[in-house]
Amino acid sequence: MEGPLHKYFKQQSLYWLKNKMTDLCANEVKLYARRKKLKADALGINFKRKESRIIEVKISREDFLRDEVLAASYGYHAIADYAYLMTPVGLLSKEEIPIGYGLLEMDEFDTIKVRRNPTRNPKPILKLDTLVKRTARAATNAVLFQELTKENKDLTDGAFSKEALAHLVRATCTLCKKRKMYLIHSRQEFVVCESRTCKNDIPLLKARVHTMTSYNENFLNELEDLIRNKMT
């Protein structure tokens, strides 16, 4: 089962590919090469340059060492024009990276840096059209899933956001990478991770934070009126 850290790195790899490729990107792209079933963590297509890039996420040395696909004749570097490994900072040395692969490292603030450039594969074993179809299918499935997820969200359309005093936010812990909801005031700079095994101070000005809704003095007054009326 995929852990939250691997899932988070995979999501960030997609954002990096989008900036790099500009055209078509997706996570979990199912591929078939030389009678082998594979799943690329992230795959991007650039139509103008007619090239493809694959990112394989590794968050532990054990995961890296047991992966027999990387150096295989049907591996990611054999499939795409360019292939990368993406890891936490310092997990792997450049010398350990299989021939042809690039190395991307992401720090605790989600900054991704290229530590080693990949070598272009002159003859990918899968045609670009095939990779485009597979990537488009994965992207479509992801969009449909997101649309279904939106139905479960509580949207207030910013009804109490003007001159807000407090905010309900989703923040990703820079240490454990778990994403949870927090109620914070407008000038708050840190919040303690609510994960029982973490309790790390999350720097709200640097971490990945999304405001779900905001509350101003009008909201507080209306809430007090509701409570007062209920008690009388």
Rank of each mutant, 00 (worst) to 15 (best):
P88F: 04
M86Y: 05
D129G: 03
V114G: 07
A166Y: 14
K153G: 00
T130Y: 09
D107Q: 04
R115N: 12
S93W: 05
R137V: 03
G100T: 03
T87A: 05
T111M: 11
A71D: 11
L126V: 02
D81A: 06
E105P: 07
Y82L: 14
D129N: 06
L104A: 00
R134Q: 06
R170Q: 04
A142L: 04
H77S: 07
A136W: 02
T149E: 14
T149H: 14
L85N: 05
A142P: 01
V132Y: 12
N117V: 10
D154L: 10
L128S: 00
V89S: 06
V143I: 09
L128K: 04
K113N: 01
K94M: 14
A139C: 06
K133Y: 02
A138D: 02
K127F: 01
E108W: 08
R137D: 02
V69Y: 12
V89E: 08
I79Y: 05
T130A: 14
A72T: 12
K94L: 15
P118C: 11
V69N: 07
R137K: 11
A80I: 04
A166Q: 13
S161R: 01
R120V: 08
V89P: 01
I125F: 00
E147A: 14
R137Y: 04
L165P: 10
G158A: 13
E163M: 06
L126A: 00
K127H: 09
E95N: 11
G102R: 01
I79G: 03
S93K: 11
E95Q: 14
L131E: 00
L103P: 11
L131M: 07
G75R: 02
K133I: 04
S161F: 00
Y82R: 09
E105K: 01
T87H: 05
A72L: 05
T140Y: 06
Q146E: 13
K123Y: 11
K153W: 15
R137G: 07
F160T: 02
F145R: 13
P98C: 04
R116M: 12
A138Y: 01
N121A: 09
L144F: 08
L104R: 08
K150T: 03
L92C: 13
R115K: 13
L148W: 11
D129P: 01
V89D: 04
L104Q: 02
K153S: 08
I112K: 05
G100K: 07
E96C: 10
E95P: 01
M86T: 07
T130I: 03
I125D: 01
E163I: 03
E147K: 13
D110I: 10
E108D: 14
P88D: 08
A71W: 07
N141I: 08
L92K: 12
Y101H: 03
F109Q: 11
D81R: 03
Y101T: 01
H167Y: 12
I79W: 09
D129W: 00
A166W: 13
M86A: 10
A142C: 04
Y101W: 06
L155V: 14
P88I: 09
E95M: 10
R134N: 09
D107M: 05
T149A: 14
E95K: 10
A166V: 08
P118W: 04
A138I: 01
A159R: 14
